[in-house]
């Protein structure tokens, strides 16, 4: 039995079925990300004045990732166009580019996560704070070493936009440490939202890459038997990829610029 409307448009919707399916799926995705964006707005508006973090993200890496995703949207479109004009060689090239860009995005995201997880806020017994990147944390030693700074006011750690932070290597005896915590999702609301939103987004990039990888690899066999249907599959994967890119266009200013 043949599956109907994989190529030709269904009379009542005017679209082939996979396209209707992907738009229904993307609608549910809008609600998923919309809920998380709402959580962000509510938590930010409800935060104690002066305690919402600013300037905590690596702007250079965030900007590079935005460029990478923008380029991947273009290569995805080009891959679909190549299928439409029956140039399979170009399709393979553009989809390979998309995959490479996706891997680049994920690598940069991993580096950003590593930076956050290696950054510590240390509350000292004398009431001051030390803040910086962990250099040495050997349990056998009675001290730790960070690349950072001391401050008496915790508020100094929240808004980094107008500060010129001078970091130096600090050797801190463990006996002086009251508490210390890395900048993971457990640290505060902002980082919890940052890791949730970007983690979910990165998961979408990963899943999209698997689909694109399948179409580029084993799935390409369909091109020989039914090129029109294959082209539709490429379009559907491209619609998903564009949605994921569009989500990043909202995430970037919200998390990196405000």
């Amino acid at each position: 039995m043949e599956i109907p409307y994989t190529v030709e448009a269904r009379p009542d919707t005017g679209l082939y079925n996979a396209k209707v399916g992907i738009w229904l799926f993307l609608s549910s995705e809008v609600m998923l990300f919309g809920g998380l964006f709402s959580a962000y707005i509510l938590l930010r508006v409800g935060a104690v004045p002066g305690t919402w973090p600013h300037g905590w993200q690596n702007l250079t890496l965030g900007t590079i990732n935005t460029v990478v995703l923008a380029l991947s949207a273009i290569t995805t479109l080009m891959a679909w166009v190549a299928c439409k004009v029956r140039e399979f060689g170009k399709f393979k090239f553009f989809h390979a580019c998309t995959l490479l860009l996706a891997v680049t995005f994920l690598c940069i995201k991993c580096e950003e996560y590593r930076e956050h997880l290696n950054h510590y806020e240390i509350y000292m017994k004398d009431g001051t704070y030390a803040d910086g990147d962990m250099v040495q944390n050997d349990a056998a030693q009675d001290y730790i070493v960070i690349d950072g700074r001391y401050t008496k006011n915790e508020m100094d750690l929240y808004d980094l936009r107008s500060q010129k932070v001078v970091e130096k290597e600090l050797k801190i005896p463990r006996s002086q440490i009251q508490d210390m915590q890395s900048y993971g999702p457990w640290h505060n609301d902002y980082l919890a939202l940052y890791f949730t939103l970007t983690g979910l987004h990165a998961l979408h990039i990963l899943c999209g890459s698997v689909v694109i990888g399948y179409l580029w690899g084993p799935g390409r066999k369909l091109w020989k038997t039914d090129p029109e249907r294959f082209t539709n599959r490429v379009e559907v994967s491209g619609l998903f990829w564009h949605f994921v890119d569009l989500v990043w266009i909202f995430l970037f200013p919200v998390l990196y610029l405000t």
Partner: peptide, 23 residues
């Protein structure tokens, strides 16, 4: 279609780039 969605994407990207420059 992907063409229409790409056009929307390009529009948002232009807005983001402009906003980013101003910021």
């Amino acid at each position: 279609s992907l063409k229409a969605f790409h056009l929307i994407f390009v529009t948002f990207l232009t807005t983001l780039s402009l906003g980013f420059a101003v910021w």
